[in-house]
Structure formats: C-alpha cells, structure tokens
C-alpha cells in the first residue's frame, strides 16, 4: 500500500493505492494521524486505486472520522470509491457515516 498526500487550501487529500489489510492498515492510520496531529481535520481520501479493504482499514476510517468530527472541527470524506470497496462500506453501515463523492473535484469542493 502507498499513500500520496496533497495539501490544498481548505483540505488535505490522501490518495491510497493497493491493499488496506491488517499488514498495511497501521501505515494508512499513520498517514491520517499525521494530519490530525497537525490540526488538519478536513480530509478527502481518494479511493480510486484501492484494491482491497478489510475491517482493519475500516477501523482506521471510523477512528479518524471520530477524531475529525469531534467538536465539529472537520470531517473525513471519501471519493472515487470502487464498487467492491463500496459494497464493504455499505455492509458495515459506513455509507451513512461518510460522505461519498463520485469525483475528487466535488469532494475537495465540499470543504
């Protein structure tokens, strides 16, 4: 798994490539924590190149969303989610906890 960070004026985009499983979820979590530790709570995750996500990855998403939304200081949103990944999010009931955008531009424009 690889993460690529792009900082915009009103939000940060993390593009994730590859598999998010128990082996790689700690690195995924670290990439997000490095943002929230800097007080950056408006985050877009570009999921277009995510091949797989397990519950370990879902736990990172939920933990980060809780951190971002605390005190209404921000939000984590998802963009360009592949169909298989979306099915996993829906199964876990995450589709109501995260805004999901079809394209990255709209997701960034959300902030």
């Amino acid at each position: 798994m690889e993460t690529i960070h792009t900082q915009y004026k009103h939000c940060d985009v993390i593009k994730v490539k590859g598999r998010i499983d128990s082996a790689t979820a700690p690195n995924f979590g670290a990439a997000l924590t490095s943002l929230t530790d800097q007080g950056r709570y408006h985050i877009v995750i570009d999921m277009s190149d995510v091949e797989f996500i397990s519950s370990a990855g879902l736990r990172v998403l939920i933990t980060t969303q809780k951190t971002c939304k605390r005190y209404n200081r921000g939000e984590l949103v998802l963009a360009q989610v592949p169909a298989n990944i979306l099915a996993a999010l829906e199964l876990a009931g995450f589709n109501v906890l995260f805004k999901i955008f079809d394209d990255l531009l709209t997701a960034v424009g959300n902030f």
């Binding site: 397990s54 519950s55 879902l58 736990r59 939920i62 933990t63 969303q65 996993a88 876990a92 009931g93």
Partner: peptide, 16 residues
Amino acid sequence: NAPLKKRKDHGLGIFI
C-alpha cells in the same frame, strides 16, 4: 446502524 459516537471498532471481521 449505530451513530458514529457509538460505533465500536471491533467485531466487524466476524460479521463480514
């Protein structure tokens, strides 16, 4: 179906 604040971060694996 729990709201965000009440979501637990374990048990999803067996559920899936």
